[in-house]
């Protein structure tokens, strides 16, 4: 589904990704772990199409298409979803309005009719229940005045409604207490499907207790230096990132 080859990215003249390779197949859950500043968030942002990141080399192929050639909205309509590390507060834009506008943009792209108002409300109610969110959130401005945990839940709510093919989760566990982490993880787990892939970027192993990955990668110095199954995450937790750095330097 997603194939990244030799990806090199600079941000403000500084090399952040330095020849990254990654393959993700449908149905898989990948965790990308790494120390601060290793390029994890850059990877997520570049895949979603954020401005200010310059790709200097490499390719990203998503469902046989050149992902990097697409505008952010085209990626979203093709099924790419980024759950932000810091969800943006947008005063004056209604939460439910954004959900509906996003869903309709994607449906239109697929040649489907706009969502029926009743159907939409039923869908939103069901997903809000899953995320244990009060309905009052619908008519509040997007993320405005939300707590850290509410913002993260809102991201997963959007994801549950937009039903992406490739979900990118950028530090979704950061700032969550244990109860919120459980709710958010439940939301993510409910979206696991054979035709959907999930890529989680995280600093801590903790999230992986709740969302079990098929593959774990270690990103440091702008490259994936080690890959394994979920036992790799446990080993990292025990031995720290310095172990990987030393190991990869030796190799």
């Amino acid at each position: 589904m997603l194939s990244i080859r030799n990806l090199k990215v600079t941000v403000a003249g500084k090399q952040v990704l330095n020849g990254l390779n990654l393959d993700v197949k449908a149905g898989e859950v990948h965790a990308i772990m790494g120390p601060n500043g290793s390029g994890k968030s850059t990877l997520a942002q570049v895949l979603a199409g954020r401005d200010g990141y310059e790709v200097t080399a490499g390719t990203v192929t998503y469902q046989d298409r050149d992902l990097l050639a697409l505008a952010p909205e085209e990626r979203a309509r093709e099924g790419v979803f980024l759950a932000f590390q810091y969800p943006v507060e947008i005063p004056g834009v209604n939460n439910v309005y954004l959900l509906k506008a996003g869903l309709n943009a994607i449906r239109k792209h697929r040649g489907e009719a706009e969502v029926d108002a009743f159907e939409f409300l039923t869908l939103v109610r069901e997903k809000m229940q899953l995320m244990q969110m009060n309905e009052s959130f619908l008519n509040r401005a997007v993320n405005e005045g939300f707590s850290g945990g509410e913002k993260k839940r809102n991201e997963i709510l959007q994801m549950a409604i937009l039903e992406p093919t490739l979900a990118l989760l950028d530090e979704t566990d950061s700032g969550l207490d244990i109860d919120a982490l459980r709710v958010v993880s439940n939301g993510v787990n409910s979206l696991r499907r054979a035709d959907r892939a999930i890529v989680m970027v995280t600093h801590y192993q903790r999230l992986l207790d709740y969302i079990q990955p098929d593959h774990v990668h270690v990103l440091t110095g702008g490259r994936i230096v080690m890959s394994g199954d979920k036992s790799l995450a446990l080993e990292l937790e025990k031995r720290g990132y310095d172990w990987v750095k030393e190991d990869s330097a030796a190799a």
Partner: peptide, 14 residues
Amino acid sequence: PVSLFYLRSRGLGE
């Protein structure tokens, strides 16, 4: 620009 990107990443045109 961050708000714009956020909305576009949800499928809204520029």
